[in-house]
């Protein structure tokens, strides 16, 4: 008995003893490692910003510069001169916005049906949707291309938009959230004579702000960043999107001209950065919850 009590007092004392010591290398070391790691993550972006705003001839030199020399917008101007970057941006924005709105509609409707309504075949359809999450999208690349071509949609934005309008992942994400909304709320509305659609529109959707935001961010960012789709389906420069546009720029300038390409990268990354900084708590939370629930 006494030994146990003794042990307890010693363990209780340890944190106090630790706190008393002014500096302990062991406690600072993790912070140093983390700091070094985040330096490695941030440095490439800093270097790109330097190259985007600095003098073109000084962008890519040894030893590397970390601050722009004679800052100007010259690189941005020559980026726009070489390729129709404003079109790339507009196309990307248009596609990503339509896809995001489309997915919010299709996924929330289906998710509501799977979460709340009773119908024949519900479980089997839901299972099929879920198992398709395991089908790598690249596997259907060739046949989807052929379907698009038969539909006359090669070289149109529709070929990028249509397949992305639905998302089994989105259905799953929203369904899991809808299941956590108390059913009593809907019962009350039903007693008052509200239709299923009214309940979905007036009760479920307003209560699902966070998860809808999450899905919107994930969809928008994925679409903004997609590369292989536009690479295959779009063969006209005026219809092209930012990601492929950047690689086209690299082709035109050659690997030496970092400045204008860095300006292009800067323009491609900044919208994502803004969305990310504004809504990071949704993004992080969604990653963590989908990580745990799946």
């Amino acid at each position: 008995m006494s030994t146990l009590a003794e042990q307890r007092t010693t363990t209780l004392e340890t944190p106090i003893q630790r706190a008393r010591k002014p500096f302990q290398f062991r406690r600072v070391l993790p912070l140093l490692i983390l700091g070094f790691g985040s330096l490695l993550m941030i440095a490439p972006f800093v270097w790109i910003i330097q190259a985007a705003f600095g003098e073109t001839s000084k962008a890519f030199v040894i030893p590397p510069l970390w601050f722009p020399v004679n800052p100007s917008l010259d690189n941005f101007i020559s980026a726009f001169e070489q390729v129709p970057f404003q079109l790339f941006t507009w196309n990307t924005l248009k596609i990503a916005t339509i896809v995001t709105i489309g997915q919010l509609i299709t996924c929330s409707l289906a998710a509501y049906a799977f979460a709340r309504l009773q119908f024949r075949g519900k479980n089997i359809v839901f299972f099929l949707l879920l198992s398709s999450l395991m089908i790598p999208s690249q596997v259907t690349l060739v046949p989807t291309f052929i379907i698009m071509r038969q539909l006359g949609l090669y070289n149109t934005h529709a070929s990028l938009i249509l397949p992305a309008l639905i998302s089994p992942f989105g259905v799953f994400l929203l369904r899991q959230y809808f299941l956590t909304i108390p059913a009593e709320l809907e019962d009350a509305a039903r007693v008052d004579g509200a239709s299923v659609f009214t309940i979905y529109l007036r009760i479920i959707l307003p209560l699902s702000g966070p998860v809808l935001t999450t899905l919107a961010i994930l969809t928008f960012v994925a679409q903004w960043n997609s590369y292989i789709g536009p690479l295959i389906y779009i063969n006209k420069i005026e219809l092209q999107v930012i990601t492929v546009g950047l690689t086209l720029m690299r082709g035109r300038f050659g690997a030496g001209a970092l400045g204008p390409i860095a300006a292009g990268i800067f323009m491609a990354v900044v919208p994502v950065l803004i969305v990310f900084l504004l809504l990071q708590r949704y993004i992080i939370k969604s990653i963590v919850t989908t990580g745990i629930k799946t």
Binding site: L109, A110, A113, I135, T140, P168, F197
Partner: peptide
């Protein structure tokens, strides 16, 4: 209710059949 449910999942299902 089942009819409504089918309408609700219709867009997802059509897309799923066409593109997956």
């Amino acid at each position: 209710e089942a009819m409504i449910a089918y309408l609700f999942i219709a867009p997802t299902l059509v897309g799923f059949l066409l593109f997956v």
